[in-house]
Design a protein around this nucleic acid. Structure first.
Lengths: 340, 340
DNA sequence: CTGTTAGCGCATTCAC
DNA sequence: GTGAATGCGCTAACAG
């Protein structure tokens, strides 16, 4: 006795008194002029009556495609990835594709990490903010890397879409320098991702090129408490920085807290900048000067590239510029104001 | 001439000079005492050489299970769902299951909304923060509803896991009342979800039961600007509230902004409370009094319930208590302090 | 217009 | 110990 197995197209065919292929045609929506309206109607009714739902696994096997792509992100707890998904899903939907998300390395550091890799049947993968070798889980699967830096490996590189973080960081430093700042503190994220390395390097170069420019640096995890501590260390140095350049908006929130703990006013006594322009940036007081990264466009462009790849085209690498958003957390340093 | 089709187990068999079933046994890890070590080794080598990856669609079809469940959430842009995923993925991994995420209604409001519903082959669905009829997309699929309120439909209801939001709201109101507040303003989320209806009702009842209690109410979208406007309206009334109870931490951030715009100090002139206890709560200044909702545990319990369901057991509905986290955004009202 | 047939790639019986 | 045969549910040729 079979258990509560779901009805198959065969069952529908039997119920409707037709053959399986007719069912497939009707339910597949391609019966124009091939099946009589009456029969089609009967098939639909039978399917409805039985509560028939096609078996996706069988469909996928037969078709050789799932019209589904996987978006791999390092974590879902960072607000940054929501828009990336939205952008990707939007263009995917336009092409009849679906998007599912998964995290890697697994948010779930359970003892029994999935033994067989991903059980997903997918047509391609979009990997955001991770090293290229993350694709090792999906050898042979068409892939596009997002926010992971250019693929420098020889041979056939994976297409990439990145932000112009170096330019963004230069814009921040230029903005601050224009305000009169010379002593910068970099509150850097202690995260081994391309984007943070690129930010650090761009800032270092820019400050080095600035006459009288001085840069100190401390690192922290991307959370408020850790960021506050790092900012505190930077600010406690003799001859402390007049501007704190933070790798992330959340880190900037920690810098705010450090400033308050030391009785410093932002921006009068200390300028603070963030990066990413997430919701938090305008929730803070004063509102944060930061670099807006077009996260949704990253997802959209990435998906476009992946669909191109699936269609046999080779998309070119792309860089999406960031945009400096000057708000209320930056101002001329006290010394400079005094000096003028 | 076939294109770049991936190698199949048949190819591996040929390469290794054995039969398909031997390949399946070896790669499936169940060859103990059925295949000679030498043969097994040969198979592994051949698979490696060819870069063989089993076809998941075929595997899923044959096995009748995908060991994958879908987590459906309304949006990925809200910080709340990251932990839910983490909790769900953790217990899923422990049972050899994977979790993929999808949003619904689609974040991607593209013109061509996915015509065939989800193309995913899944064993079950975990639906968070949505109405029961969202499950209409997956009729017959085992499902558990999260943070969606009890399933009041007769018959075989869907198992649910919820937060004790009513108790949480009562705790907030009680805390504020204990501080001496009597005039409350509810900055409510204009979102048609069970959790917000429950919050509104609990607050209304509690204030109504409070001698001298007065409640005004305004609604907004869950974003800073909209929340600020709503708070401003509440605060501009004659005889304004001394405490603003916000439906969400982000809304509380908007309330902070409204207070500052009116020259009111939080908490001296105005107490503000949030809900959820997301990262933002401690990024704000002063840190926010709020109710912590165990989001990760919601995911974990939900997945446990779903796995029970898949195993043929019927999990009981569960309610996870919230916890009042009193921080620096609440204090006695001026009038009360003066009165003492 | 409709039914019959074949096979997608895999895991699993059952012979040998 | 290993190979041949079978069928999961579906779609797309091809007959009729």
């Amino acid at each position: 006795m079979p258990a509560i197995s779901r009805p198959t197209s065969k069952d529908v065919a039997q119920e409707a008194g037709v053959s399986q292929s007719t069912v497939s045609l009707v339910l597949g929506g391609k019966w124009s002029g091939r099946v009589s309206p009456a029969t089609a109607r009967g098939v639909r009714d039978a399917a409805e009556r039985l509560g028939y739902r096609p078996n996706q696994a069988a469909r996928n096997l037969r078709l050789g495609t799932t019209r589904t792509v996987l978006l791999m992100v390092p974590t879902l707890s960072a607000p940054f990835f929501g828009p990336v998904y939205t952008g990707a899903a939007r263009v995917a939907a336009r092409h009849g594709f679906g998007v599912v998300v998964s995290t890697w390395p697994d948010d779930a550091q359970g003892p029994a990490d999935s033994p067989f890799g991903s059980a997903e049947a997918i047509d391609g993968v979009l990997a955001s903010s991770m090293a290229v070798d993350a694709l090792g889980r999906f050898p042979g699967t068409p892939a596009v890397m997002l926010d992971s830096g250019p693929d420098v490996r020889p041979g056939a590189p994976v297409p990439t879409v990145d932000f112009g973080v170096a330019d963004g960081m230069r814009a921040i430093a230029g903005h601050l320098a224009g305000l009169g700042h010379r002593r910068f503190g970099h509150v850097a994220a202690a995260v081994d991702q391309w984007t943070f390395h690129a930010r650090a390097e761009a800032l270092a170069r820019t400050v080095a090129a600035l006459p009288g420019g001085v840069l100190t640096r401390d690192t922290c995890a991307i959370d408020v408490t850790s960021a506050k501590d790092a900012a505190l260390r930077l600010l406690s140095a003799p001859d402390p920085p007049t501007a704190l350049v933070c790798d992330d908006d959340l880190i900037a929130a920690g810098a705010y807290k450090a400033a308050r703990a030391l009785g410093l006013d932002v921006p009068a006594d200390l300028s603070v900048t963030g990066f990413d322009d997430v919701l938090l940036a305008t929730a803070l007081e004063p509102e944060l000067t930061t670099v807006r990264l077009p996260a949704e466009e990253l997802g959209a462009r990435g998906m476009t590239a992946l669909l191109d790849l699936l269609a046999g085209r080779r998309p070119a690498a792309r860089v999406l510029p960031g945009e400096l958003i000057a708000r209320a957390s930056t101002a001329p340093p006290r010394a400079a104001t005094k000096g003028v």
